[in-house]
Design a protein around this nucleic acid. Structure first.
Lengths: 337, 337
DNA sequence: CTGAAAGCGCTTACAG
DNA sequence: CTGAAAGCGCTTACAG
């Protein structure tokens, strides 16, 4: 059975094809009688506008692409669990706004998003999971050249302070570590990547340092551990610390996953959390309340993040200036400290 | 700056527009010299084919829609965590096949996918998370009428045995419960929804019953608990059992989430898992190894599921007959039993 | 408020 | 292997 076109509807409703288009678009004045007849005819023939023709003709795509970087630390899932609620909220909010969402998992080697804008699949791109954004600078440069709008969640880039959408990493880390210090902890491990390449984590490191300074506690470089962001790495790092006889009474992990790995190792070694070692994470994955003890953490507000990302991108698509947004975090105290 | 069209490329390469299209499509014979010139010109102008014009003209959309039912049991995540790796694998495999993926979160009340096929956004639809598919029968009927291809993961529908893609629920449950019985457990709680409306869970219930029958152990109806599929419900159900003084020595939950809730309640009540009560889940979420004790479970193979879903859908789109596929599960023994 | 007409940027028979 | 031409199904000035 052939798909009906607007001409078929026009014939059935007894109007011109142009009027059908106008009635269905809800953006032009159309007499009530005509509108009714058009909608009835459309319903009768199960007609809907061919979105491809509309996009071609109107030049409005009304679609955003969400490009998620494949997470090599999580081979089972491919996507970092932190992004699950974020993607969910983006889909939700985009749905509310009536824009379609194309989702793609990007491998490191891929042509990487360039295709999406260029081929007019999408009006703009949201990048998720590009922690080490510096690596991608060259590719982003192409997007910039052709004026393809995009926005990244997480890392702040020196060149585009305006394009930043992310959490208040420094503030969140500061609150978390201040709390640990208030608890009487003095030897707090920083578990994460404190290099400038990962600005998100580096900001958390700065919050860690500031909390120490404000409390007059010395930061011991031996406690700043550099490792990848997976549970296994967190477990291994703590193991090494224990093996080396390093003295510590708390762990601040830049990621819940890392914190969970830390707790598992500590418990395996017979240490009790939080009695012997306090542990604090970052993100507030839903898993935090599944483990024992439940994990205290810094909550990233993914609902707000999703809205801000979509709104910012839409503003850029419309040619309006975008503002950098730093989303407040929230300290969530549970059992692990 | 205006986007270049195939006419611009044609002018630059010194050929006709039709030849540009043919060279770029890689599907027609084109002389080597012409091909080179066309590709050079395209690269120079940052040209890519306008996907919307191509879709309109060729009538090939090359896009599938993944419609995920909003999970009301998981308000924080909106998407059931089980689907994370499944969606990841679908994105991955679809990417390999060069088809775009539109993802949408569907609320119960939505027009529900009908839009996707009708408006020619996608060639076909993959439904995820429609456990209680009977509710949607009427809506699916419309898809059937217009010949829009679709496939569902999970529940098997009586009318379309061919369209089924799902795990070997009965076999997985049978293996799990048989293992519990072999461990000496005799009073095994079935935690889930054993109604026919949820065919996935009902199949698991049948496996639970068959394992008992084969071992000559009586099934006690008092141990078959009906509850929603969330951690909270699992916790509450076990609490009720404990309060009522019901005797049981194992829990088989139709979902890891439920099993985790059960373990949390048991531990809160001072019971030791697995010494006092063995617990077995279903799915093999990555969380299983985060909790203490690590959860034994029945693994659903999401990688294979993703491939089968995409392949089946593509076959349907191409007008070929589809076969029902039941994907083997795997018993994963860890610490909880 | 409505119609006739042009045209979005491609693909693909049809001829050669 | 290549070109000229038609046309996919819409939206949107332009007139009235």
């Amino acid at each position: 059975m052939k798909r009906p076109t607007s001409f078929d509807i026009a014939a059935l409703a007894g109007v011109s094809q142009a009027t059908v288009s106008r009635a269905l678009s809800n953006a032009y004045p159309v007499s009530e009688d005509v509108r009714r007849r058009v909608f009835e005819a459309a319903a009768k023939l199960n007609y809907t506008v061919d979105i491809n023709a509309r996009k071609l003709r109107s030049k409005k795509i009304n679609t955003i692409a969400v490009l998620v970087s494949e997470d090599l630390d999580q081979p089972d899932n491919r996507i970092n669990p932190f992004f699950l609620p974020l993607i969910g909220s983006i889909l939700d909010y985009a749905g509310e706004k009536g824009v379609d969402v194309l989702v793609s998992l990007q491998k490191q080697s891929d042509n990487w998003g360039v295709d999406y804008g260029f081929s007019r699949r999408a009006d703009g791109i949201i990048f998720l999971g590009y922690r080490d954004f510096e690596t991608y600078r060259q590719k982003v440069e192409v997007l910039r050249q052709v004026g393809e709008p995009w926005v990244v969640f997480g890392p702040q880039m020196s060149e585009d302070p305006d394009l930043f959408v992310g959490s208040d990493n420094e503030g969140g880390a500061h609150a978390a570590v201040s709390h640990l210090i208030k608890l009487g902890r003095k030897r707090i491990v920083f578990l994460g990547e404190a290099s400038e390449r990962h600005s998100e984590f580096f900001e958390r490191f700065k919050g860690y340092v500031r909390a120490h300074e404000e409390a007059g506690v010395k930061v011991d470089p031996a406690l700043a551990i550099d490792c990848f962001i997976s549970r296994e790495e967190g477990a291994a790092a703590i193991q090494r610390l224990l093996d080396d006889g390093v003295d510590f009474d708390a762990v601040f992990a830049v990621t819940d996953l890392l914190a969970i790995g830390a707790i598992q190792t500590l418990q395996k070694r017979g240490l009790v959390v939080p009695r012997d070692v306090s542990v604090m994470g970052f993100d507030d994955l839903w898993v935090c309340t599944c483990i024992n003890p439940e994990l205290s953490t810094v909550r990233q507000d993914t609902t707000t993040a999703a809205r801000v990302l979509v709104d910012t991108l839409i503003r850029l698509i419309d040619g309006q200036p975008a503002e950098m947004t730093r989303i407040p975090t929230q300290l969530v105290l549970r059992e692990s400290c």
